Simulated assay, not measured.
Amino acid sequence: MRAMNIITLILLVIGGLNWLLVGLFQFDLVAAIFGGETSVVSRIIYILVGLSALWQLMPLFKSFSEDEALAQRH
């Protein structure tokens, strides 16, 4: 599980940085590296980033159920 969390967090950072570039400069780095938004590799990366976001929802909801978020506020 720990390895999967690290991998998904890395993918989310990559996705976040890519969206930052899209927002600031209208430049999609993933598409530029892998041959356009519709290339198979780009689509796989977009899918992996999206699945990573879904995966990271589990620890988020778990932290709420364990009152970890409440404990961090105090």
Rank of each mutant, 00 (worst) to 15 (best):
L24S: 12
I10E: 05
V41N: 13
A71V: 11
V49G: 04
W19E: 15
F25K: 14
T38M: 10
S39N: 12
L54P: 02
L21E: 06
E68V: 04
R2H: 07
L9G: 04
I44C: 05
L24R: 11
S52T: 11
F34D: 05
L54E: 02
Y46I: 03
S65Y: 01
F64G: 03
L54T: 06
I7K: 11
M1S: 11
S42G: 00
L9A: 04
E37W: 01
S52R: 04
Q72L: 07
I7T: 08
W19A: 07
F34T: 09
N5D: 15
A53R: 00
V49I: 15
L11G: 01
R2S: 10
R43N: 15
V22L: 07
V13Q: 06
L70Y: 06
L12P: 01
L70C: 03
K62D: 14
G23E: 09
M58L: 11
G50W: 01
T8G: 04
K62F: 08
L9W: 04
W19P: 00
F25I: 13
G23C: 04
S39M: 07
R2K: 14
I7D: 05
V13T: 15
G15A: 09
L29R: 05
P59L: 01
G50I: 09
S42Y: 02
S42Q: 01
M1H: 07
A69L: 15
F27H: 10
L24I: 15
V40S: 09
M58F: 07
I6S: 08
M58D: 09
V30S: 04
V41W: 14
L20E: 00
L12G: 06
L57P: 00
A3K: 14
E66V: 00
S52C: 07
N18D: 09
L17F: 15
A32E: 06
R73W: 10
T8M: 12
A71D: 14
E66R: 08
Q26C: 05
V13L: 13
V49S: 05
V30P: 00
D67P: 03
V41T: 15
A32M: 02
I47W: 05
D67H: 12
F34L: 12
F34H: 08
S42F: 03
F34V: 10
L51S: 03
G50C: 08
L29V: 15
P59I: 00
I7G: 00
L20C: 00
L21S: 13
Y46V: 02
Q56V: 08
H74G: 15
V30D: 02
G23L: 07
E37T: 13
S63R: 15
M1Y: 02
V22G: 00
L20S: 06
E68F: 00
P59D: 01
G35I: 09
N18K: 01
V40G: 04
G16R: 13
V22M: 08
L57F: 07
G35D: 10
Q72A: 14
A53N: 03
K62H: 11
A69K: 08
Q72Y: 06
R43Y: 00
L57A: 05
Q56N: 12
L21M: 13
L48C: 14
S52F: 03
S63C: 12
G50H: 02
E37Y: 01
A3C: 09
R73I: 08
F34E: 05
L60C: 13
S52N: 08
I45G: 01
L70K: 02
L21C: 06
I7E: 08
M58Q: 07
W19V: 09
R2F: 10
N5A: 12
P59T: 01
